[in-house]
């Protein structure tokens, strides 16, 4: 089973990297970019076959290591191979 995890900054948390990307897009001539927020995407291959167990495990991975919930939100989906 494969977990696809997205980690994004919480609303209200400043994202200086997103701002820099927004500025770079502007200087490349892309007009009308009103905001940019950047984050992380992580794929994990799991040995687990039971979806509920995999979901619980990935959730714990996110809370304990992959995301820092002080500033980040996480979301994930599971896909069978």
């Amino acid at each position: 089973m494969k977990a696809r995890i997205r980690i994004t900054l919480k609303n209200g948390v400043l994202d200086p990297q997103g701002k820099a990307i927004q500025n770079a897009l502007g200087s490349l001539g892309f007009a009308g970019v009103s905001d940019v927020r950047q984050g992380k995407y992580i794929e994990i291959d799991l040995a687990a076959t039971d979806e509920a167990a995999a979901r619980a495990e990935v959730d714990r991975m996110c809370r304990e290591l992959l995301a820092n919930t002080v500033i980040e939100d996480y979301a994930f989906e599971l896909a069978k191979p």
């Binding site: 948390v13 200086p16 990297q17 820099a20 820092n68 002080v70 500033i71």
Partner: peptide, 17 residues
Amino acid sequence: LCETGLLPGILQRNASL
């Protein structure tokens, strides 16, 4: 220390990048 939770909060990228 922040990542262990012994101290609250987090250190983010410098505002200046």
